[in-house]
Amino acid sequence: MNRLLLAVGALLALVLAGCGVRPSDVITGGPAPASTVEGVRFYLLSDDQPTVVLRGLKPMKLDDLLSLLADGPTEAERAAGLTSEVPPGIAPVKVGTAGDGVLVSLSTDVRGLSVLAVVQIVCTIQGVAGAAPVTLVNGEQRRGPLSCPGYR
């Protein structure tokens, strides 16, 4: 008889405790919505991760794009904590095609570029030119073909 009372009490307590709208854990739904963007994409670094930035510029040639990348972050971008490892010495740059890939001629030693700098360059080019693999050359030196690392 006592056990029965206990069970009824527990049930009642459960009912009382479950009343109303309770806080929940984080519920994960579908993928985040993607929207279109305007402007020119560059890839800078945020905590050593390539991060996209947009500049409200008119579309331009890839050569000029890489030159702008070599100029480093703008004031606002630096203020937001973004950095670049692309040395200014890569300019002038010539971008051509080689088979189904993109051939980028830099004015600096491509082997001396840091991994992050290469990622910035490759991602910036692919952000405009699409999925074609990118090869960096300087005279006889070449790196690639390379692709921008994917994001989740």
Binding site: G20, V21, R22, P23, S24, D25, V26, I27, T28, G29, G30, P31, A32, P33, A34, S35, T36, V37, V52, Y151, R152
Partner: peptide, 25 residues
Amino acid sequence: GNVVWQRFSWDGTPALAIGTQLLTK
């Protein structure tokens, strides 16, 4: 990278917080 939501108590009233990132194609 997903749409997420959570019920919580917002100044004493129950509320739903929904969050997502903006992605770009």
